[in-house]
Design a protein around this nucleic acid. Structure first.
Length: 225
DNA sequence: GCGACAG
DNA sequence: ATCTTGTCGC
């Protein structure tokens, strides 16, 4: 397992991404959708006090019921810079994952994996550091382009960086905005979309993300005020 | 040079 | 991300 290194500045952070990118595994299909466990991770910030709280919520993939959850509190040590989100979130997310009483199975995070200017977004970074299968599900297309997918749940279209497919715009509910799925580590794009669709059974966002979001917000309020 | 830009 | 009232819809 690779240890997280906090770079001194933005140039250092890009160098870390360029160096770790070679360790991303893209030729595994990943865990079968609807089986085993799926874990959502998310963070909430208190910018006034430089506090960040991460949450990890483990669900049964078949029932979407909560199996386990954990939180971790940390300090913000890196500014938000588009393309360098991972350096803000990963240390505390790792702490939350490590304190889980069970194995996470597939990890689902907010943000991107391969859909990244240097093909090393949060989901890929987290995957390389933990060795776990990880996917990213984001609410925005970032700088990438896409054609509007069909109107029904399950319809999708390629998320493009030029003519390269870096992810997919996936409609998870009829008549709602799509989410943007990309592979992080040790998972294929088709499977990543299938997982996302099963997790977004009742809402636009995957249940993993909704649970982790609610938990880290609650934990932040309890940690601060 | 300027704007856009996951969370 | 986060700050926030009312409002539309099931």
């Amino acid at each position: 397992m690779t240890t997280f290194q906090m770079p001194a500045d933005e140039a250092g952070a890009r160098a870390v991404q360029d160096s770790l990118r070679a360790r991303v595994v893209l030729d595994e299909p990943g865990p079968p959708p609807g089986t085993g466990r799926v874990t959502g991770v998310d963070v909430a910030y208190d910018d006034e006090r430089d506090v960040v709280v991460a949450a990890a919520v483990v669900l049964d993939a078949a029932t979407l019921e909560v199996v386990a959850e954990s939180t971790a509190v940390g300090r913000v040590t890196f500014p938000y810079v588009p393309g360098l989100l991972a350096f803000r979130e990963i240390p505390t997310v790792l702490a939350a994952l490590e304190s889980l009483p069970v194995g996470p199975g597939l990890v689902v995070c907010d943000g991107y994996g391969q859909a990244h200017p240097r093909r090393f977004g949060l989901a890929s970074h987290l995957g390389v550091l933990t060795g776990l299968p990880v996917i990213g599900v984001a609410k925005n297309p970032f700088t990438f382009s896409y054609e509007q997918p069909g109107p029904r749940r399950g319809d999708c279209s390629p998320l493009l960086d030029g003519d390269e497919e870096v992810g997919r715009a996936l409609r998870t509910q009829d008549g709602t905005k799509p989410v943007f799925v990309s592979v992080g580590h040790r998972t294929g794009l088709d499977n990543a979309c299938a997982h996302t669709l099963l997790l977004a059974r009742d809402f636009r966002q995957p249940e993993t993300t909704r649970r982790a979001d609610a938990l880290c917000r609650r934990a932040l309020r309890e940690a601060t005020g």
